[in-house]
Design a protein around this nucleic acid. Structure first.
Lengths: 255, 255
DNA sequence: GCGGGCGACGTACGGCGTACGACCCGGTTG
DNA sequence: CAACCGGGTCGTACGCCGTACGTCGCCCGC
């Protein structure tokens, strides 16, 4: 899938579709294809069957249309994925700005986590630079307002947002991996650790890595208790917010 | 590449190679293939030509060997990538534990960043749960010692490490995207922003997203100054460490 | 000296993204 | 009213990919 990278390379191609420069064809009669119908179908496939199942043939099939008909509306798979991502951003809630900055940032974090939980394929599709679609820009603007007027410079505001969203994505990825593992192996994360403990013990019993073994076991048992990733998300989020509050406090006192 | 996921599913297959259960064949004569030679060749390809260029055919070719010969030593591509990753972890420095916890964690972060800069393909290959290879376990043990004995519980130690490493990976990904973009388009990040500013302005001039436009421009100019991702890394790292210091201080006073 | 086993690998299959050109049909023009 | 033409549709085909399978030849132990 080298092409997914090329999409980033020629932004005009992606941007034209993202911002819907083209008018709806509406020549009626035929299957009545459209970018939106294609994107909806594609998202549906990715949601329910995973990103690997998203092929152009599969999309055409889902729409009762030939594979190549899809290419009439979308220049390639990479661009389709780009529009899917932007479209997903469009479904996010637009909460009113309320509470202090910390409550607002926390809300941003939770909304993003929920998005990734609803569309786990985004975590695997967003490996490349995000394409600047309309919904992403709107989201960026909305989320910036959570950290506006608290004394940060523009660059700091951007950095704060990047930090929080990065943490969310990391946590979401970890959580998604647990879910994947359960679906694919049919065992819970706890069962997985248990069944492979003997394997690992044969390597670790030499006592070479006592700390790793002890802490790994502790963390693994958290996973067994089925709230490992959630704990990591909550713990990390509070740490990140604590760290941000240090700068905010600095700015408040120093000027 | 659905197979990359399957690797995670059957860990015995990966673990056997990772921990080198098989003895070196050493029947000499022939091309003298081995897991290590294959992994070295594969890492070399991924380093210099990118992950997309890493195909089994290409690996065989680089070793002067038929494509399928590779499969004698490695069950599949997913497992090859798993060994590549663990092998890369093996090259990391083993710094002596010195300084306070903050200095030590900072060192951990910088070492990991350097690793990702040397092997950017890891950022795209590590989408799935990391496979527990020997070098990863050693790394985990080493890095845990940076946060040992400062009053944290085992689970907290794991969470702290996860948080820091997550931030490193996010930052590294952002930085890597900038590098990719430059290599592929032949223009620097600053030039890219400039050349596409008109495009974006046509959508943003409506004044719909004033904050996004202003902050985005500010952040973009940082990128133009060629230290955007570095700034995000440094800023985020200090914030994360600040946040961690809050818990550490709590534990120190409260017991 | 020889048989067995294992490393090497040629061929082939199914699936992917997508280039290309043929078809079909509605709307516009003489 | 007929001729045309442009755009939506799509069947075919190409060049990739990962890899299953079967064969061949060489080295080693007897």
């Amino acid at each position: 899938m080298a092409s997914e990278r090329r999409a980033t390379t020629d932004p005009a191609r992606s941007l034209a579709i993202l911002w819907r420069t083209r008018e709806p064809a509406s020549r009626s009669a035929g299957p009545g294809l459209s970018v939106d119908r294609i994107v909806r179908a594609a998202i549906d496939i990715a949601d329910t069957e995973g990103l690997d199942a998203l092929t152009m043939r599969r999309v055409g099939e889902a729409l009762g249309v030939g594979t190549m008909s899809v290419y009439t509306y979308v220049p390639g798979k990479a661009e389709l994925v780009a529009v899917m991502i932007d479209s997903a951003y469009g479904e996010m809630p637009h909460p009113a700005v309320e509470g202090d900055w910390r409550a607002r940032l926390e809300r941003v974090a939770r909304d993003n986590l929920a998005l990734y939980q609803r569309h786990p394929w985004m975590l695997r599709a967003e490996t490349t630079r995000p394409v600047l679609g309309p919904h992403l820009v709107a989201k960026y603007d909305r989320e910036l307002s959570a950290v506006a007027d608290i004394g940060l410079t523009d660059v700091e505001m951007d950095a704060v947002l990047t930090l929080v969203l990065g943490h969310v994505k990391s946590s979401a990825r970890a959580a998604s991996e647990v879910v994947d593992l359960e679906r694919e192996t049919g065992m819970t994360d706890g069962q997985w650790w248990q069944s492979h403990a003997p394997w690992l013990e044969t390597f670790l019993t030499a006592g070479a890595y006592p700390t790793a073994a002890r802490v790994g076991t502790a963390a693994g048992q958290q996973h067994g208790a089925a709230y490992g990733p959630e704990y990591a998300f909550e713990f990390g989020l509070q740490r990140v917010l604590d760290g941000i509050s240090v700068v905010v406090a600095e700015r408040a006192t120093a000027g």
